[in-house]
Amino acid sequence: MQPILQAIDVRKAYANHVALDGVSLDIPEQSIFGLLGPNGAGKTSLIRIITQITGADSGEIRFRGQRLNPSHIAQIGYLPEERGLYKKMKVGEQLLYLAQLRGLSRADASARIKSWLERFDVKAWADKYVEDLSKGMQQKVQFIATVLHEPSLIILDEPFSGFDPINANLIKDEILELRKKGATIIFSTHRMESVEEMCDNIALINRSRKVLDGPVSQIKETFKTQTYEVEGKGHLLVVHPDFEVLEHHDRENGYFYDRIRLHAGATPNDLLRFLIGQVEVHAFREQIPSINEIFIRRVRETMPESLVEEEAEARR
């Protein structure tokens, strides 16, 4: 299937630094796409190009195969990281205004505002001034404003910041619901657990380049290190050319916990057989790297040598 959004060799430079350097991405239709990267990596620049706030210096963005142009604005919803509302405007009027700017008719907008406010159980807010709402309430209003015009591509930059766990969950459910209804969500965040939980695909951007992308499950597969966690009882002594103990902990009553890596050619069953000969095995599982670990690893790896040295220097 054709991706909903394609970035092809996008480059963007500011006066004294390059924000994006030849970034290409494919974002599949009806998926949740995690856009990851440390602060200052170029995520916001990429998002601002997709939302047509700025343009790329070279390269191209395609929306469903078409070169991105102002007619696509109505199909894109955007919740920026730095977000706010007009304080001296009523919630209802504000939503109406923002929806109309996105190309919705007045009548349609009114009907949808009503149903969204009902959905979030906040019908009474429509006539309240934004400045009288709590921060969490304002965040909800901003979320409604983002999705009110039923965009097919929704870009959420750190959507959970500022939400309490209950409301964060509510928003999470809404995001999953939107995908079910056919929307694609680009999701920029630092919260790795939500990436793991929700994203189908991710791309990692570091120092203005894409350093990793693909389906989450596939990435995890690639980043597996053939490491297994073993828990059991007995005295474990590993002297074997195929296995390497990375970590060993003795626990009370003769229990232990080990992390063991297989060398090339060895299978988990070999290790298991070896273990059974020595100790009582209670648990045996493959250690799958979390996105967080992959993130940190890749960021470190793609750091230029000089910076690695600098960091080492600083630690000393």
Binding site: I76, P80, E82, R83, L85, Y86, K87, L98, A145, T146
Partner: peptide, 11 residues
């Protein structure tokens, strides 16, 4: 207010 980014993604 930081509303400007939302607005200029529309206009």
């Amino acid at each position: 207010n930081r509303i400007v980014e939302v607005i200029i993604s529309s206009v």
